[in-house]
Amino acid sequence: MAINLNVYLVTNGNGREAVEFYKEAFGAEVLAMQTFGEGPSSPDHPIPPEAKDWIMHASLQIGSSVLMLSDTLPGMPHTVGDNITVTVNTDTAEQAKDIFSKLEVGGKVNMPIQETFWSPAYGNVTDKFGVQFQISATPGQA
């Protein structure tokens, strides 16, 4: 059973600047960077033209750790204090669902665990201690 934990930062439209800042500060390698404009479109959450270059997801290798970040989804509030989460990456959807179901006890489900275009099981939950977790099955990457 492979599980990885990473820090996930949420920026407010300045994600590209943050990627460059952390790349320079830590001598990091950018592993991935995708903009909202590159992702699939959704009529429920249209991306305004000025946000198409905002970062939907980026990851940087810093030593043996991975720092992940994204800009706040356009139209959603950006709350300092809620802008740092812990990501939990598992090998299987079953493992992700099991961890999610345990973390949600006494907590709050922000996004139910479900299949997404990037994961067979992804969900967001705040546990009973107020810690926000993003749970994601990433087969072969955990």
Rank of each mutant, 00 (worst) to 15 (best):
Q34G: 12
A51Q: 03
V10C: 12
D82F: 09
G37P: 03
V66I: 15
I135Q: 02
Q114D: 13
N6L: 07
M68K: 03
H45S: 07
F129R: 05
G27K: 13
D82L: 12
S59L: 02
A58D: 10
D127E: 12
P48D: 07
G123C: 05
Q132D: 11
A51D: 00
E20Y: 09
T138K: 09
M56H: 04
S64H: 07
I99N: 00
M1W: 12
W118T: 10
S64M: 09
V80P: 01
Q134T: 13
E94K: 10
D127Q: 12
T90N: 08
N4E: 14
Q132M: 13
M76A: 13
E94N: 10
P139Q: 08
E17W: 11
A32Q: 15
V109G: 02
S41M: 09
G39Y: 07
Q95W: 03
V86P: 02
I47C: 04
P46T: 04
M68W: 03
G123V: 03
P40I: 12
V19E: 01
I55Q: 01
H78R: 05
V125D: 00
A25F: 13
K108L: 14
P112R: 09
D53P: 02
D53G: 07
F21G: 06
D127P: 06
Y22P: 00
P49K: 11
D71V: 01
N124L: 15
E24T: 15
E38S: 10
I47A: 04
F129H: 13
Y8S: 02
V88D: 00
V19C: 05
E20I: 01
N14F: 05
T92S: 14
N110P: 03
M56N: 09
T90R: 02
T72H: 02
F129M: 12
K108T: 15
S42A: 09
I3R: 12
W54D: 04
A121E: 03
A93W: 06
N110A: 08
L73Y: 12
E17F: 10
N6H: 14
T35I: 10
I113K: 00
H57I: 11
Q134Y: 06
K128A: 14
T90E: 04
S136Q: 11
M1C: 11
L5N: 14
S41F: 04
I3T: 13
K23C: 04
V109E: 02
